[in-house]
């Protein structure tokens, strides 16, 4: 098998993201939460020591989680396990690769380790997902080797407004590029600060070269359905589940909402009696905009 190992690794990594489509990736902090997420129908879990809402509350520098804690979660579930490293912190990424993580999230939720450079993700065997506020950020991350993109949203707030803004922005930029003349793509590449080949891909295929999920502030089945109708191919739910009154029930409802996002009658029944949603903070009430980290 060894001689197959290094062949088209990047393609295989993009293909794993394709398998996650139509699914929900849930933040978990313990093996017990990971099992709850798996049995509620998560297609993958994000292992981290503190969920974004608690990172926000605690303040200070937040870093990659303890590898022992991540391994505990890897042992607890059979679905893919992701973990976060700081923007630009390639040594944390190397450590996560060494414990055979299924996906690394180079994430603005943690404190950035580098305020200029992102990780050169093409140097890694394991796949990376990165956040983006617009098409330029998304394609810059893809150029660096990301094999999956998610909106940044505003993590840990329970407020979906920023995820909506980022997804709409990306979709409208994709639509604009799709309708351009070919000779206009060079100038667009220059404006977006991305390689023209990636702009050409968007022009020809009417989509990003990688799978695009929604993330940041999704707290209810309706939020998940909204993001799917706006063009997300799946959803990350961070604080929204384990900061709510009934995590099992809410998680299962969000999973079904992502599958049947176009069926309001079903969404209505899924939204009934879920208990208390996470309290949430409005965009105007927060001091720290994580989405502004890493461009």
């Amino acid at each position: 098998m060894q001689n197959h190992q290094n062949v088209d690794r990047y393609a295989l990594n993009k293909e794993l993201a394709q398998m996650l489509k139509g699914g929900v990736i849930m933040d978990v902090t313990t093996p017990e939460q990971a099992k709850i997420a798996e049995s509620a129908g998560a297609c993958a879990v994000m292992a981290l020591e503190r969920i974004p809402a608690d990172i926000r509350a605690a303040g200070g520098v937040s870093r990659m989680s303890d590898p022992a804690m991540i391994k505990g979660i890897q042992d607890a579930v059979s679905i893919p396990v992701m973990a976060k490293c700081r923007i630009g912190h390639f040594a944390e990424a190397q450590i996560l690769q060494a414990i055979a993580i299924d996906y690394i999230d180079e994430s603005e939720v943690l404190s950035p380790a580098d305020d200029v450079y992102h990780i050169d993700k093409s140097k890694f065997q394991v796949p990376f997902v990165c956040g983006a506020k617009d098409l330029g950020e998304a394609l810059r991350r893809v150029a660096e080797g990301a094999s999956m993109i998610r909106t940044k949203g505003e993590p840990g707030t329970g407020d979906v407004v920023q995820a909506v803004r980022h997804m709409r922005k990306m979709q409208s930029q994709i639509a604009a590029i799709t309708s351009m003349r070919e000779d206009e793509l060079f100038e667009t590449a220059k404006q977006l600060q991305v390689p023209v080949e990636l702009v050409r891909f968007v022009h020809e295929n009417k989509k990003l070269p990688v799978v695009n999920f929604a993330a940041g502030g999704v707290a209810t089945p309706a939020d998940a359905a909204l993001m799917m109708q706006l063009g997300a191919e799946g959803v990350f739910v961070g604080s929204g589940i384990f900061k709510s009154g009934n995590p099992e029930k809410r998680a299962a409802a969000i999973v079904k909402a992502v599958t049947n996002y176009n069926d309001p009658a079903l969404l209505a029944s899924l939204s009934e009696n879920l208990g208390e949603a996470m309290v949430g903070i409005n965009e105007q009430e927060i001091a720290l905009l994580m989405a502004e980290r890493g461009k």
């Binding site: 398998m19 996650l20 489509k21 139509g22 699914g23 798996e38 049995s39 129908g41 998560a42 297609c43 993958a44 059979s78 679905i79 893919p80 299962a252 999973v255 079904k256 599958t259 049947n260």
Partner: peptide
Amino acid sequence: GESTVQSKLIYEL
């Protein structure tokens, strides 16, 4: 995709 997710949804839907 993920068989755990799909099989749960096959039952519940």
